[in-house]
Amino acid sequence: MQYFFRHPLAEQVREEGRLEGRVEVGIEMVLSILEWRGIPVPAAVRKRVRACPDRDQLTAWAQRAVHATDAAELFLEG
């Protein structure tokens, strides 16, 4: 049984789980920052943030959320 936990496939599954967990934390952070700041988060914004699988993009959106006055500002480039 211990062999399974050392198997490359088992390690790949664990790594994918860790990555998925970090993405989920990023999603929650973006939405929480907006909510903590009292900024309404429309369903379309919530849906787009929740659909994002890219940790770097979520980090950029979290940084924008700190200064945003409207949730849609997350998606503005520049």
Rank of each mutant, 00 (worst) to 15 (best):
M1Q: 10
M1D: 13
M1S: 15
F4W: 15
F4G: 09
F5N: 14
F5Y: 15
H7V: 01
H7T: 06
P8G: 05
P8W: 09
P8I: 06
L9T: 12
L9Y: 14
L9H: 11
L9Q: 08
L9N: 10
R14D: 00
R14Y: 08
R14A: 10
E15W: 12
E15K: 14
G17L: 04
G21M: 05
G21S: 03
V23R: 11
E24L: 13
V25G: 07
V25T: 10
G26V: 06
M29V: 14
S32Q: 12
S32W: 00
I33D: 01
I33L: 08
I33V: 14
L34I: 03
E35C: 00
R37G: 01
G38M: 03
P42R: 04
A43T: 08
A43V: 10
A44V: 13
V45S: 07
R48P: 06
R48C: 00
V49G: 03
V49K: 06
R50N: 05
R50H: 06
R50T: 01
P53Q: 09
D54H: 09
R55C: 03
Q57W: 07
L58T: 07
T59S: 08
W61A: 03
W61E: 01
A62N: 10
A62S: 15
R64F: 01
R64V: 02
R64K: 15
R64E: 01
A65L: 04
A65P: 04
A65Q: 04
V66Y: 03
T69P: 01
D70C: 13
D70W: 03
A71C: 10
A72V: 07
A72N: 11
E73A: 12
E73T: 05
L74E: 05
F75L: 02
F75N: 05
F75W: 07
F75C: 02
G78K: 10
